[in-house]
Design a protein around this nucleic acid. Structure first.
Lengths: 114, 114
DNA sequence: ATAATATATGAATTATTGCTCACATGTTCA
DNA sequence: TGAACATGTGAGCAATAATTCATATATTAT
């Protein structure tokens, strides 16, 4: 038999889609990650680290910013587990800590270059 | 015989790496692209469009922002060729315009969720 | 211990950027 | 044409974030 007509409002398409979306918290984190990639200084640092592990001095030269600016950005990259640090004497050596990073960058390059 | 000692400075590692990096212009564009992804409102819009083409009204509901805010962000997404628009009567229907986008998002999700 | 070198970081400044508000543009229908 | 509806956009404001400057921390060598 036909269902009794209840008073549930017809969900709008927007509302339906909203239900199926990933939780806000996750979307927020994803945006945060992209935000980290979305700065030229950090982009350069990451690109330089593609070549090899490097100390802060070399990174500073490679990206052409002040040592302080580079250190500040490295702190952010560290916080997001995008780089690894290894202390060796007076120097800190940084390297890429995540495999996703290379893939994400490669795709972004593709998009940019077309 | 030993080469005559010339006055070319021994290139530092930083300088060498800098030479092999992609041109500044490209790195700048890549960072710009990531910057576009690095905002929660835009992230939500893109996520919503994964489901299907949608008009602005529905998007507005789906992401829970004002219509104006959504329109402003859509303008940016349009500018970067990340979405396509199709005008149908009074409404504008948006859809994802690029295949890289899904892949990039998938990888970012992976990283975020681990 | 002191000096020298390498890196990290707090505070202030400057620059970006996203949102809101008001309104313009564009489309349909009576 | 005029009203109603959907979307687009400029200006101003508020929030966020990046750089600089000064200085702190840490390590090595003398």
């Amino acid at each position: 038999m036909a269902a009794v007509k209840t008073d549930d409002k017809p969900k709008s398409k927007g509302a339906e889609v909203a239900e199926r979306m990933p939780k806000d918290e996750i979307l927020y984190d994803v945006a945060e990650l992209f935000k980290v990639f979305g700065d030229t200084t950090r982009t350069k640092i990451i690109c330089a680290l593609f070549e090899s592990e490097m100390c802060v001095q070399d990174l500073t030269e490679a990206v052409g910013m002040t040592q302080s600016a580079v250190s500040h950005q490295l702190r952010i990259l560290r916080h997001f587990n995008l780089v690894l640090v290894r202390r060796r004497g007076k120097s800190s050596f940084y390297s890429l800590g995540d495999n996703h990073v290379k893939k994400i960058f490669a795709l972004a390059m593709e998009h940019t270059l077309e």
